[in-house]
Nucleic acid binder design. Structure first.
Lengths: 202, 202, 202, 202
DNA sequence: TATGAATGAGGGTTCATTCAT
DNA sequence: AATGAATGAACCCTCATTCAT
């Protein structure tokens, strides 16, 4: 017999897989059940509704992300290390659970309409946290001060998001830590130093 | 009496508004009809199906974007002017038709599952074009050469996309040309020069 | 300018063609209009409704058939000539206007549910007339008297109907009068003399 | 609680009844559900679509008919017994399940346009089988040889079909075996010996 | 006459959810 | 815990018919 926790986790994973395959709105509860190898009635023993099930996926993602952010805040790391940790986290998450990240990137990022109020909150709150990190960087003169912190957040998150999106798009696999490190450093380098070349003018 | 062309345009606008409101998948044809102030049967005189109607929205967006890219290519502008034009285009589009841009940003960017093959093509083709621009910049030493052009595209498009997304998210209004110019220059500055501050280290 | 009569006839023919192609219930007024080369609004100038139009087709067929039967009755022909005339009529009609006969055979014969009361009447009335012919044949000892006339009608009409149906089924063309004569005589022969062979027993 | 098999059969019967009442094309799934005393969603648990449900009716009819034909072929009966069995089968089927036969006769016989390819195949295949029986009869000199076997099939099947049709038309009930036997013998007699009377000429 | 834009009732189908077993 | 039969609201789409021009 399968334990209650395991069953729940199986359903969760099945749901992620189904959403990845068909998209959030076309994901059917019966597909989730089929993917989990159970009857669809049973899904309702573990998750009260489709909304519930899918909310739990969103929460899982954000909760982890906010937990990371908390740790970074508490540990008082240097700015670059904080940013590095965030980038690394995304890549690592993608390596460990590509389906979950895929779902997040393709279905929940950059979307308002599918988001109920609670989900929207997550997005806004997270950007706020990044803003705070950027502000600290500006305060310590590690980041330029002639830009609103929000702009710094935008370009940082934008780059990160786009890179992960593109990996998702082509189903790219991350093979080892070194690859994650390389990508991470590239993003940081670009973010900090910009794209300008030798003859790029002043 | 409304002309045939106008009717079609009205339905188009109504569809954009409805998608903005409810999202692509929850947008009902009956809502589109209601928003356009017509019977829903009439929608089918102008668009063969929901798919048709929504495809036409996607096409409209991309066609314009590719037209801009064509012009840039033909006119042989300096790199920075090309990038500036692209950023400006997004902001201008947002100012002129916030709903259309909202729909694009929230529904069609960063999504694979909802995209049929044709739509996916657009995405891939556009990134290719941006890559080409970046390659040219690298060839002329205007952009650093120690990065794959695709990475430069990522950070550029990511920043652009994220900024527009965030404007969409908070329903921000663009008031005048100067605001567009200011945002554009900020993005370019950040893209080219990076976020590093005085004490940011080497 | 097309005369009113001609227009009406064109629509009629178009309707027959469309019914032949798609069947009675899937025949669309817009298809009829398209086949007639006119706008679908115009169809309603000539026929008040779909029902009207299709009723007129049914009526046309039956009216001709009953006219034939009247003539046969008035002219007091020998039994065999009457039957021959009826068979010949079906084949001739098929040769002249295969589409009309096709529609009749495939859509209106042997059907009750599609038939409104008026159409059902036609069927019943026609069998009655054939019964009368058979009765006369029995009275004159030209036909065996140990069968209800209705049975004689059945086997006669059944053979006729099935043969025409099968020509319709394979889109067979009738080329000349001799072919019609040959088929007619075969049917009559079979009807009168039966299928028994030399060793068929008593 | 109703067993799964019974439910399916109930829906089947309800569908037959509804088609009998309204005809194939006007038969609504909601009517089928209503007739079966269930919600219309449930119909889709048992039959994937309207097409599916109605195909199964057609198949049921033909499968039985072909099974009969197989038995006749294997048992190597005398010609007359084969023909008798076929006629008897139709009458028996009508007695047992008048609605099914009604639907078959009124909706699926003599129709091409409503028939998809698969259904058309059934028709053609069955006539072929009857042809074979007739050929055998001709080979054994039990049937006249101056006619194509197909013509013999026509008159035989035509008579049979028309008789059943007419019973359907007037909702005639078959009361006992003797009635079936009587009708069967009449058809055979007419088929074999023809309708000619004493003074019917040579 | 002639057009085709406009209407809207109606039907097939989907799928989240409930519940008897 | 587990099943899947059962429900029915919801949605896409069709098409006969009307009517302004």
């Amino acid at each position: 017999m399968v334990s209650k926790q395991n069953r729940e986790k199986e359903i969760f994973k099945a749901a992620v897989a189904v959403i990845k395959e068909h998209g959030f709105h076309k994901a059917k509860m019966s597909d989730v059940a089929k993917a989990a190898g159970i009857s669809y009635g049973l899904v309702y023993h573990y998750y009260g509704s489709k909304e519930d099930l899918f909310d739990s996926i969103v929460s899982r993602w954000w909760d982890r992300l906010f937990r990371l952010e908390s740790e970074l805040r508490e540990n008082d790391l240097p700015l670059v290390d904080k940013l590095r940790a965030i980038v690394f986290y995304f890549l690592d998450a993608y390596q460990r659970d590509p389906a979950l990240v895929t779902v997040f990137v393709t279905e929940f990022s950059n979307t308002t309409s599918k988001l109920n109020a609670k989900r929207l909150e997550y997005s806004i709150k997270f950007v706020d946290r990044i803003d705070t990190i950027m502000e600290e960087g500006q305060a310590g003169c590690l980041l330029r001060q002639d830009m609103k912190p929000r702009y710094l957040s935008y370009i940082f998150m934008g780059a990160l998001n786009t890179i992960v999106s593109s990996m998702v798009l082509v189903n790219e696999e991350i093979k080892g830590d070194e690859q994650k490190t390389r990508i991470t450093e590239s993003i940081l380098d670009l973010f900090l130093n910009g794209a300008r070349g030798a003859k790029g003018g002043t």
